[in-house]
């Protein structure tokens, strides 16, 4: 039983102890590497080549020509400013209504389980279907929204806002808010439930009003969770092209095109992979810049505290 192990056997055991975790993670790492990282590198290299599937003679290196084209492409700059507005409006509305819902659900009342299941339901609706459903709601032939909007004087006659360039982006934004409220509500509800009850009770004993308790107890407690959720969500939504592709395809006249849907259009409709990859490279650079700024801000905030 207590006989000393021969050295080679111990070495083998040590080796297998080091390798064992890699045994478990390597299948996942291999497929992620092959399907995500290899195409990522290859895609970045496309940005310096002319690759149009419809043109069999393309494929050569063109240096920075795609980026020069990008710099002069008004459609790209339009898409960039649309992305900013799309992201800002979607995230802030989702957050605002999600926080409201989380506060409403953060107490017990009869029928809570059923109501909770119903208000979270939009999150389960596949995104393409959310897009289609809202596109139909905005359609004057089958949808009620144009008729209601004209009845209350928002528009002169029932028309589809998705076909009016100046307001079309609101269509996908509203669909996105509808679909995304549950996400914020669920994450914020989890955070709310982690606030110790004693804090609220102590504040109430000290005579704090509901509003004071919200501002002085709830919000500071939620702040880190809010910050991380909003930051990550911002990145996710700025890349979220499904609703736009389904509802407007970027139109009319590019008024709803965001950078992500522009990349998709270039690759899918025009089969111009070189240019699509140049736009993708620019998007990636912008997101990295955003991440660096956010990390810097976080560090200086932490130092201030």
């Amino acid at each position: 039983m207590a006989a000393p192990e021969p050295a080679p056997a111990r070495q083998r055991r040590l080796l297998s102890a080091i390798l064992e975790p890699y045994l478990y993670i390597s299948p996942a790492l291999i497929i992620i590497g092959l399907v995500m990282f290899v195409p990522l590198i290859v895609g970045l290299s496309y940005a310096y080549r002319e690759i149009q599937l419809l043109n069999p003679f393309s494929g050569g290196f063109v240096g920075l020509a795609n980026f020069a084209q990008l710099y002069g492409d008004t459609r790209f700059w339009r898409a960039l400013s649309n992305t900013a507005w799309w992201t800002f409006a979607s995230v802030s509305l989702q957050f605002f209504f999600g926080l409201g819902l989380a506060l409403l659900l953060n107490k017990s009342f009869p029928g809570k389980r059923l109501i909770q299941a119903v208000v979270f339901l939009p999150w389960a609706v596949p995104t393409f279907l959310s897009g289609l459903t809202w596109a139909w709601l905005f359609n004057p032939v089958v949808g009620p929204l144009p008729h209601w909007m004209s009845a209350i004087g928002l528009m002169d006659e029932p028309v589809n806002i998705l076909s009016i360039p100046s307001v079309a982006l609101w269509g996908p934004i509203i669909a996105n808010v509808w679909w995304g409220i549950p996400f914020f509500a669920i994450t914020l509800l989890a955070a709310l439930q982690s606030i110790p009850n004693e804090l609220h009770e102590a504040a109430a004993i000290d005579g704090a009003t509901t509003w004071q308790r919200f501002v002085k107890v709830t919000l500071p407690f939620l702040a880190p969770m809010i910050a991380i959720t909003v930051l990550l969500r911002t990145i996710w939504i700025s890349n979220f092209a499904d609703l736009i592709v389904v509802m407007t395809g970027g139109g009319p006249a590019d008024s709803t095109q965001i950078v992500a849907s522009y990349i998709f259009t270039q690759a899918y409709r025009r089969l111009d992979f070189g240019y699509a990859s140049a736009v993708a490279t620019a998007l990636l650079a912008l997101l990295l810049l955003y991440a660096v700024i956010v990390l810097r801000m976080r560090r200086s905030l932490l130092r201030a505290m």
Binding site: I32, V35, M36, V38, P39, L40, V42, G43, Y46, I51, L232, I235, W236, N239, A241, A260, I263, F264, A267, Y268, F273, A276, S277, A280, T281, L283, L284, L287, A291
Partner: peptide
């Protein structure tokens, strides 16, 4: 792995198709 959740998947559409 966390990084893969953040970069825009749409930029993989062209290379994945071609590969």
């Amino acid at each position: 792995l966390l990084l893969t959740q953040m970069f825009p998947l749409v930029m993989l559409i062209a290379p994945i198709f071609r590969l």
